[in-house]
């Protein structure tokens, strides 16, 4: 009969209309409770349709791999020895691999010797050019540049706000661990420690028995993930709290580093004495 197809379609829209209320009733007042379980369920595959996200009051948290604009990792402020130090060694791979070429790095030079030091002197990213592709983070050999999850960046003036300099780009390592606990943990496994790759290498070179120390780090790492995941899921907390005895992951390295520094000083003193003599 002419018109049945039309009626069928209209029935479907009616069903959608009714379903949306039935769904609301099913959750009742709980839909206003901002409960996380509720939200995940209603935005997942089991829900019917999509339920509007009440944006500023509730936000769809972005997944770990999400990429927006890049940021640089610096050591946490409460790090005992490297507080506030860059992870970046200014190797320049991010600037080379950047498709629209929006990264500028000034390699740092030692003011006295003029030799390059493994830290960038300046770092700029023009976020008006950046295409959020994530290559810089993907190909950085030092895990020093990462893609941020903070998308709330709208501004009224692009000339002053859209070239991010080093100060604006720098965020602590704990922040990265808080926004991407799983990936931070995987990277840590590859590096072997929560420390920066160079620091880890130094530590390994410094320790008398490298195999033993790496085994120690492994066991530590095995203990870490669960703690990291839970800690990071709730708040930006450094995984310092990970090991059960409360020691920081770098405390073990600290002793070695102290030892090494003492030895280096001794050597230096000896050399100075020799050249002076």
């Amino acid at each position: 009969m002419y018109g049945t197809g039309l009626a069928k379609g209209l029935m479907l829209t009616l069903r959608h209309f009714i379903d949306s209320f039935v769904d609301d009733l099913r959750y009742g007042l709980r839909k206003y409770s901002h409960s996380t379980d509720n939200f995940g369920l209603r935005q997942g595959t089991e829900a019917k349709g999509v339920i509007t996200v009440q944006y500023p009051d509730e936000k769809v948290a972005v997944p770990e791999r999400f990429r927006f604009v890049p940021f640089l990792i610096v050591e946490d402020e409460d790090h005992p020895t490297r507080s506030g130090k860059d992870w970046c060694t200014s190797c320049g791979i991010c600037a080379k691999v950047c498709p629209p070429q929006c990264i500028w790095i000034v390699r740092g030079n030692d003011p006295n010797t003029g030799r390059p030091v493994p830290e960038p002197e300046a770092f700029f990213i023009d976020i008006d050019i950046c295409m959020n592709c994530g290559y810089c983070a993907e190909y950085c050999p030092f895990d020093a540049i990462k893609m941020d999850h903070d998308y709330e960046l709208a501004s009224y003036d692009r000339t002053s706000h859209h070239i991010h300099d080093k100060e604006k780009l720098s965020k602590p390592a704990s922040y990265w661990r808080s926004i991407a606990p799983t990936r931070a943990y995987e990277e840590m496994l590859v590096r072997g420690t929560w420390e920066h790759k160079d620091a880890a290498k130094e530590a390994r070179r410094g320790s008398a028995s490298p195999r033993a120390s790496s085994r120690a780090q492994e066991t530590q790492a095995e203990a870490a993930p669960a703690a990291v995941a839970t800690a990071a899921a709730e708040a930006p907390a450094p995984p310092a709290a990970a090991p059960a005895e409360g020691a920081t992951p770098w405390s073990e390295d600290d002793a070695k580093r102290e030892e090494r520094r003492r030895k280096a000083l001794e050597r230096k003193a000896k050399r100075a004495a020799r050249s002076g003599g």
């Binding site: 500023p56 972005v62 927006f68 959020n132 709330e152 960046l153 709208a154």
Partner: peptide
């Protein structure tokens, strides 16, 4: 576009997610 027109709000991102755009609209 600000080379030709006065712009009130800039929303960075490539592309900005819907929530980023909403943030810009609230701005």
């Amino acid at each position: 576009i600000d080379k030709y027109l006065p712009v009130d709000v800039y929303v960075p991102g490539c592309p900005p997610t819907p929530q980023a755009l909403l943030f810009g609209m609230i701005a």
